[in-house]
């Protein structure tokens, strides 16, 4: 009798554990594909070794909009020719500077088309409140792309934006963040 009972429970137990492994372990791995930046750009080399400030590259334009990542032309002010031994630099100069092309950088925080974001309204906050700590990295972090939606895994979710707005007394009207 007791033997028969355990036989009934066992398949459920196996199924349950199996579902947990798939749900927690396998599915996230399957859902996100790992991508590397097109150029292994080191923030350490530029910020620590070259003493550049963040806002030399990540500037505001005169109309208050955020310029984001510098254009190849701006990088070429220093990288018109290969200066060092680093293969990443050689690749950057050959494939982008010489070809006059923009680098298709992957944006960890890229938001959907219908979201409006303003950096200047958040200039009192540290970059790492919202971004992975890219500013101190030597190798850019891995970019995880959601295979279904095509969005980055590190993108800030709406509830995270709204929670901070609520805590700081900023407006949570839909049109503040949507367009």
């Amino acid at each position: 009798m007791a033997k028969g009972k355990s036989c009934v429970v066992l398949p459920f137990l196996i199924g349950f554990v199996g579902a947990l492994i798939v749900g927690w372990g396998l599915f996230p791995k399957l859902l996100y594909s790992e991508k590397a930046q097109p150029i292994r750009f080191s923030h350490k080399v530029h910020v620590e070794d070259q003493g550049m400030a963040c806002d030399e590259c990540h500037t505001f334009r005169e109309d208050g909009s955020f310029a984001g990542i510098p254009t190849t032309e701006e990088c070429a002010e220093c990288h018109a020719e290969v200066m060092g031994e680093d293969p990443a630099e050689a690749k950057f100069v050959e494939e982008y500077v010489n070809e006059d092309r923009e680098v298709p950088w992957l944006i960890y925080q890229k938001q959907p088309d219908n979201v409006f974001f303003s950096h200047i309204a958040h200039q009192d906050f540290d970059c790492t409140t919202c971004h992975p700590d890219v500013g101190n990295s030597d190798t850019p972090p891995v970019y995880y792309e959601n295979k279904i939606s095509g969005y980055s895994k590190q993108t800030m979710k709406m509830w995270q934006c709204e929670r901070c707005h609520a805590q700081n007394g900023a407006s949570n009207a839909c049109y503040v963040c949507h367009k």
């Binding site: 109309d63 208050g64 409006f116 200047i120 309204a121 367009k179």
Partner: peptide
């Protein structure tokens, strides 16, 4: 500055709301 709408949703004039947001950014700058 304006997102594109798919089939199946309603839309209307927004007083070009994005221009309001840009004007606020410029004021902050």
């Amino acid at each position: 500055s304006t997102s594109v709408r798919p089939r199946g949703v309603v839309e209307k004039c927004t007083f070009c709301h994005h221009r309001f947001m840009y004007a606020k950014e410029k004021a902050r700058y």
